[in-house]
């Protein structure tokens, strides 16, 4: 290397293969990437409309809600927990955001904040019940799913709330600097969450909590705080998805997020995360979400009967998960 006088300090080195490897492959979702590419190739041959920039943009836009929520869900699942309430959180956030726009001066900033704060608040409640009281997250969020959903219906008397605010539509429903709003906000979520999960000390704590919570606690990690934070992250992102959904529809419907939680969880698990915690990548989750988008879109374009589509989607999920989360034999 350099002269002997300036010999490099022993042991100082760059991490092998760098952090990027971590982002993509640390949890080996290679089979997912292969399946993803295989699906794209297949549909490109099967339908003349599939392989086009317009169609790809279409897919990305359609999957934006799921992608954004699933990115947050990756944190929760990596800590070894689960959040079933994200769909209704999204609905509730959409409703409160719309009500704030309608009744509190029609400011798009306030509308956005209302959505995010609502989601974050649900996250704090979920996380506190799970982390502090030790109630299983499956049960806690099954309960909050119902509560948030009921609340969304109650505050709006089950009616959609019409939104009249051009800036709000512009930023969340139409496009920003030429990028469709859904895709723009997905990119924002990625830009924040990839560093957070894969390059921050918080991310390490998330994986440690999911990998072995007791060992993490014995190492001085406040696992309660880590879990609460993870639930807040997914809550805020569900709030964002709610805002996007109401801006896109120009009115907020109280059932806009219904059922989204299962799709989001499927995307995370497809992306190579373990439901037992300790493993997962944001990119994997994104690909998982896009893959389901590609599948739905491709099946429509190739004229498959919608009732058959449902079954095919289910079979693909199970097959892909069987490959990605097959238990390592020691």
């Amino acid at each position: 290397m350099s002269s002997s006088a300036a010999a490099p300090r022993v042991g100082v080195s760059r991490p092998s293969a760098g952090g990027l490897r971590n982002v993509f492959t640390s949890d080996r979702p290679y089979p997912l990437y292969l399946a993803f590419i295989a699906l794209i190739v297949y549909f490109s041959f099967a339908s003349e409309f599939f392989f086009s920039a317009d169609n790809f943009l279409n897919i990305a836009r359609q999957t934006a809600f799921v992608s954004i929520v699933a990115i947050g869900m990756t944190f929760v699942i990596a800590t070894g927990e689960i959040d079933l309430s994200v769909g209704s959180t999204m609905s509730l956030a959409a409703m409160l955001s719309a009500l704030v726009l309608k009744d509190l001066g029609n400011s798009w900033v306030l509308g956005l904040l209302a959505g995010l704060v609502t989601g974050g608040a649900v996250g704090v409640i979920n996380g506190t019940l799970v982390g502090r009281l030790g109630i299983p997250s499956f049960l806690v969020t099954l309960g909050s799913l119902s509560i948030a959903s009921g609340l969304a219906l109650t505050v709006t008397k089950t009616q959609p709330v019409v939104i009249v605010n051009d800036s709000f539509f512009q930023y969340f429903g139409s496009s920003i600097i030429g990028i469709p709003a859904g895709i723009f906000w997905t990119i924002v979520a990625l830009a924040v969450c990839i560093p957070l999960l894969h390059f921050s000390t918080f991310g390490r704590k998330v994986f440690a909590t999911g990998g072995n919570a007791t060992a993490a606690r014995y190492s001085g990690i406040n696992t309660t705080r880590v879990k609460v934070s993870a639930f807040v992250i997914v809550g805020v992102l569900a709030g964002l998805a709610g805002v996007l959904a109401s801006a896109q529809g120009q009115s907020a419907r109280p059932d806009v997020g219904t059922g989204l939680e299962l799709t989001a969880i499927a995307a995370v698990v497809l992306g190579g995360a373990s439901l037992f915690g300790g493993r997962g990548t944001i990119i994997g989750t994104l690909v998982g979400s896009l893959m389901m988008g590609v599948l739905n879109n491709g099946l429509v374009l190739t004229g498959v009967n919608p009732t058959i589509q449902l079954m095919i989607v289910g079979a693909v999920i199970i097959t892909a998960v069987a490959f990605t989360s097959r238990k390592r034999t020691s």
Binding site: R204, F207, A208, G211, N212, A215, A216, S219, G220
Partner: peptide, 21 residues
């Protein structure tokens, strides 16, 4: 196995646990 290490994680990940903050 229960209190000391996360078995599925690498040596580096485990060693870092105590110094994250």
């Amino acid at each position: 196995h229960v209190q000391g290490v996360a078995l599925e994680h690498s040596i580096e990940r485990n060693l870092a646990l105590t110094r994250l903050s």
